[in-house]
Design a binder for these strands. Structure first.
Lengths: 144, 144
DNA sequence: TATTGTTATACTCTATAACTATA
DNA sequence: TATAGTTATAGAGTATAACAATA
């Protein structure tokens, strides 16, 4: 475990990252609302648009209790964006699968997420490369 | 308004930032929970620990409706972490002021927020300076 | 017996609208 | 009239515990 740093430079970087986080979150919620989705619904739909998943796996990805996913998928299913399908290999499992409309909504949601694309326009290609490498190193094994 | 970029490099940086945001949020909620606070309560307490504020100003800072702040401050007040004080200049206004215990809790909360301090340990001082400058440029006027 | 998904419950956060006390 | 804070209400997310179906 690395020693915590409290020098002014590190504290400023932490504060800057906090600002990025706040702005990203805010813009994500706004983008979701523009598609009449809550943040949680948008996150689940975005996840399923990459790959259909059993209910339990969704909870693991979102780091919440499986019982919560029931309601979120209920609401996405009522909107016609997601379907529950039985898993032929294990009849206990239900796969949550996006419908065509769900995939389309997920795609438009991604396109409307201008955050960090617009601010990144302030940087040159070389600077974006530098930023990418620094973030990769910061995040370590997770993105290796 | 800058043109949105969809080149692979920019998309990767956006995804990396998304990872940072998810991890930061998760760790913030955990740190709050360790002090028996919700995320919203921790954010309000952290804000007030810098500067006591009228209820309405808290809502503006958190970008939510003023009616929500009533309940959050109610719960912080019930815990003895915050007090409502009348504003002598305008008797409509109530100032939310952290108690000594509230200030102490806010300080310990900040100390336990190791996020972005620990991962930043992976970077040299020169790299942290570089990251700081890139984030400043990205965020533009907000942090000028 | 263990696991998957669900239900039931309680709490918190959120927005909206109506209310009160001041200004 | 306008503003600050509150209350009332309804919807959504969250964790916990108990349950049915299946493994």
């Amino acid at each position: 475990m690395a020693t915590s740093r409290t020098d002014p430079l590190t504290l400023e970087v932490v504060e800057l990252i906090g600002t990025v986080v706040a702005r990203y979150y805010e813009e994500y919620e706004q983008a979701a609302a523009q598609h009449a989705l809550t943040g949680a619904q948008a996150r689940v739909l975005g996840l399923l648009s990459l790959d259909p998943l059993p209910m339990r796996r969704i909870a693991q990805k979102l780091k919440c209790e499986p019982s919560n996913i029931t309601g979120i998928v209920d609401r996405l299913e009522a909107r016609g964006l997601v379907e529950r399908r039985p898993d032929p290999d294990d009849r206990r499992v239900k796969l949550a699968v996006p419908t065509d409309e769900g995939l389309d909504t997920a795609r438009r949601l991604r396109d409307s997420l201008d955050f960090a694309r617009e601010p990144l326009g302030e940087l040159t290609e070389g600077e974006r490369t530098l930023l990418r490498d620094l973030l990769r190193r910061m995040l370590g094994a997770d993105v290796a």
